[in-house]
Write a protein that binds this DNA or RNA. Structure first.
Lengths: 347, 347
DNA sequence: ACTTGACATGCAACCGGTTGCATGGAAATC
DNA sequence: GATTTCCATGCAACCGGTTGCATGTCAAGT
């Protein structure tokens, strides 16, 4: 045991990675053919128990580990599935990712995660890059055009989350049910003019929510105005506040909780009290009660979405068929403390 | 153009993935040997420009895409690097991941992201699984034992973030500088008893912060008590509040911002006003000004950490050497609104 | 005109597994 | 005891590229 700086110098040059114990070496050691070693690992039932034993023992002592790449090359299977999201930093996605990972694990698949930063080019690139190394891809809230998605789907099994492309298996979180409840709730509280703070232009969810709000409002004598927040982020929300107030609305529904949180901050900054002067509802319910005041929001089903999408993909892989599945998950309003009757001034 | 349900039935069975245009087919089409096709892509300078042209054209029309797996098998290189984090849902990590991804991109590497859910077993498994498909791994805030880390480092290039294992390249965010400032700040405000709300037991950062607080306090006539929060999360922080108050302390430093946010909520629940009655400081500054009141926190350097770790790894891969590098990134206190002089009662 | 060298290209082995088919010996059948 | 059947194992081709070396060609050098 040499210690400290001296020994370190040696370790720099001496570390040699324990490279490549191959199937042939194991075969030699066990006195069998390479194919038998292969079978000992993949189809032990084909061999006599003693042979399997001998091979496994030899493999063990040599420290043999099957080479994933070689195996993938000959079988065409690598046991990985890709999961691509637009923005890991958005709290909507991590629970979805975790759920997907868990589900993949159950079938011994491994998740490769990609982050596109909301950039379609990056998304395209990532899909291409993943294509060779995964057996299928789950595209979450894709920002790609329908054509690109179709093109990719022609190359490898694809499942979409929150994107509705005909003929491609997809899992949709239907926020319209929850959004409808939100509008009804605000209408009941007496609000007659509501702003929708919209999200990314090419987001399917955004389109869906905007439509749902309009349709809900049309039956309720409620006016809707849309104010764009560009991105789904705190800053975007905060910047949108002036425009929101300029409409004269008394309540807002934001594209997501992050945006809502930004709006909340912007309102506080302008001394507009929530919910006293202004009511606010988010979407996705990712911030739960951690804002102040606790944000009323539309529930999300991201965990189920992740789980279902992955299991759907795995099912496709195993049955080798394409199912034109279309799962829809309903949502509802989660009431907290950012909404109040118009003109109400405390107890 | 047949529409709707009918055509769908066909598409189910008819879709055949455009599988496997190989190098041989391109070679035939272009009238050259397989090796020339290979060279046209990897070392075009070895071929005459016209030949390259012809081959590329043939490849283009056939829709040839080099098979990543096959290439990896013969070269031993796959151009991927693994990045493993304990919890994507923790806002500390996404910026780090993004920065790493960006840096990897610059050298045309692709990041495979793994999430361990704070579980060492899962981490071990993930490293093993990645080992065959990536050229190196960045382990962020590893929860593994030193031995396991060393064992893995013997198998493939490894860079650590926020983990200090001798002989293994590592990038450390030194929160002690910032934490020291935090304690000094609280001491100046008159606080004489401070609680450290600790984080995960096997977290290097946690150990570092606890030590730094103790050492900073010892020179300042300040008492430190430690209250465990078990996990780095909102809930853990919130649950720790009773214990925190029971110590009689007037201020706390939390392991991270998430924990601090939980503490903030717990205090509000118990009608303890912040900063009036109690001062609170977080770590990692991930929530910025989005809490209420805006959280004073110790800055993080996660973006640099991600960038440096990845570039370090790539450097190792290219030079094929192991550098016993140890980058340390300093931090500082970011003042906001959750600290106040003891006994101060407003202007 | 003949050697020399440079350069473009082809040949074939190799990366490390998997798998269809052949083979040989033991057990089962008649 | 001869024939059939079955099972364990080996052989060799294959997955789709890469790469060291050999070969052939053509231009420059003498």
């Amino acid at each position: 045991m040499v210690s400290g700086a001296n020994s370190r110098k040696y370790s720099e040059t001496m570390i040699k990675r324990a490279k490549g114990v191959t199937i042939s070496q194991v075969a030699d050691a066990a006195g069998v053919a390479r194919s038998s070693v292969s079978r000992a690992f993949t189809r032990p039932d084909m061999l006599s128990p003693e042979t399997v034993d001998r091979i496994l023992k030899a493999a063990e002592t040599l420290g043999y580990v099957p080479n994933h790449t070689a195996r993938a090359l000959s079988t065409g299977r690598h046991g990985n599935i890709g999961l691509i999201v637009p923005d890991i930093a958005n709290p909507f996605f991590p629970p979805l990712i975790q759920a997907g990972q868990l589900e993949a694990d159950r079938s011994d698949f491994c998740i490769f995660l990609g982050n596109t930063e909301e950039n379609p080019k990056q998304e395209d690139k990532l899909v291409g890059r993943f294509a060779g190394q995964v057996e299928g891809i789950v595209l979450v809230s894709s920002r790609l055009s329908d054509e690109r998605i179709r093109a990719h789907a022609a190359q490898l099994p694809l499942v979409l989350i929150n994107r509705d492309v005909d003929g491609i298996p997809r899992v949709l979180i239907d926020s319209s049910s929850g959004v409808r409840q939100a509008v009804e709730h605000l209408a009941e509280l007496g609000h007659r003019k509501i702003v929708y703070v919209s999200g990314p232009a090419n987001s399917w969810s955004n389109k869906q929510r905007r439509t749902a709000i309009r349709s809900a409002a049309s039956g309720l004598k409620v006016d809707i105005e849309t104010v764009p927040a560009v991105l789904a982020s705190y800053t975007s929300g905060r910047n949108a506040v002036s425009a929101i107030l300029a409409t004269g609305a008394t309540a807002a529904v934001a594209f997501d909780d992050l945006t809502a949180q930004g709006v909340l901050a912007g309102l506080a900054e302008k001394k507009v009290s929530v919910p006293g002067d202004f009511s606010l509802i988010g979407c996705d319910d990712v911030l739960g009660a951690v804002t102040y005041p606790a944000l009323t929001s539309v529930s999300n089903r991201s965990v189920e979405a992740g789980r279902v999408a992955v299991s759907l993909l795995i099912e496709m892989l195993q049955s080798n068929g394409i199912r034109d599945a279309r799962y829809v998950l309903q949502t509802h309003l989660v009431m907290r403390e950012t909404t109040m009757a118009l003109g109400y001034r405390g107890p």
